[in-house]
Amino acid sequence: MTEQTPLRKSSLISDQEAENITRVEELAYEIKVQEVMTPNPITMTASVKMQEVLEQFRVARISGAPIVEEGRLIGIISIEDLIRCLIQSDLQAEIQKYMTHNPFTVKGDDPVVEALKMFVSTKVGRLPVVNKEGQLIGILTKGDITRGLLKALQQDYQTEEVRRYRASHLFEDIESERTSLILRYNIKAGDFTHGGEASSKIKRALSRMGASPQIARRCGIATYEAEMNLIIHTTEGGVIRVEIEPHQISIDVYDSGPGIKDVELAMKPGYSTASEKVRELGFGAGMGLVNISRCVDIMKLESVWGKGTRLRMKIFLKKEDTVGEGHAAKS
């Protein structure tokens, strides 16, 4: 567990940072004020002496406190107010003389971005947080927001990191003569809307398991071409089955018809039986099977006209490129 995965090239850091900036913007809309505020803040009542405020601020190391009356927020007292009071040497006065009455508030279920806007427009340093009934539930500073966003960002990052870590070590602690992971996808004929979804998932799974970008790409392209062939050329769709072993990926794509009359001809670059409609969608170059043969190490296409087609492919992984055994993906 000690080995750290070097995930990105240094040249990508600025992109990564830029990405994080937009993610922060997104998070500002997703995260609610109550998730980042300080709940149950120290509160005071309006009749307390300013001397007491000084003590409380010092002991609790706070710089502001909401003033409540029967749970309802009526004002806020801040360190600035205390300073004004000190200048006047007026520590015996009651809070109500120096506090801000009817302060700006934010609602607990407002998105953080609302609070940010409020900070900008009002220039206040802290905002009391209230619930729908107007009762005080917390207090919010800009620091709370920054901390909350950072934490959320880190969580985001860690979830993907943890996923990658787990997947890339999948096979390590399992002992058997031969360990493998099998992924299965049912593909519907004519389902262009979801065309390529299975291949995307396979590609992502392989990346998470530590496959190199080249391996993930080759596997993605091969399965995508095969997936689209199931969608375009079969009567009832078919199945993609991917077996992942540390040192090889075996892909099996089969369907129950109509089959291919002349397999050799089908393998020729440019040969296609795709309809005009399918060509309009950008398929039918007759290059799919050729692409597959380029991307995999072994390819076997068998078909019986009237029965169905079976396409088997294998990609071998070099010793340093095995998946699920804790090898980090090199980019």
């Binding site: 065309g195 390529g196 979804e197 291949s199 790409r217 993605g220 995508y224």
Partner: peptide, 12 residues
């Protein structure tokens, strides 16, 4: 069509 995006993903 959406396939353009899928294709793009496969080809990085």
């Amino acid at each position: 069509n959406p396939q353009v995006v899928r294709t793009a993903m496969m080809a990085d």
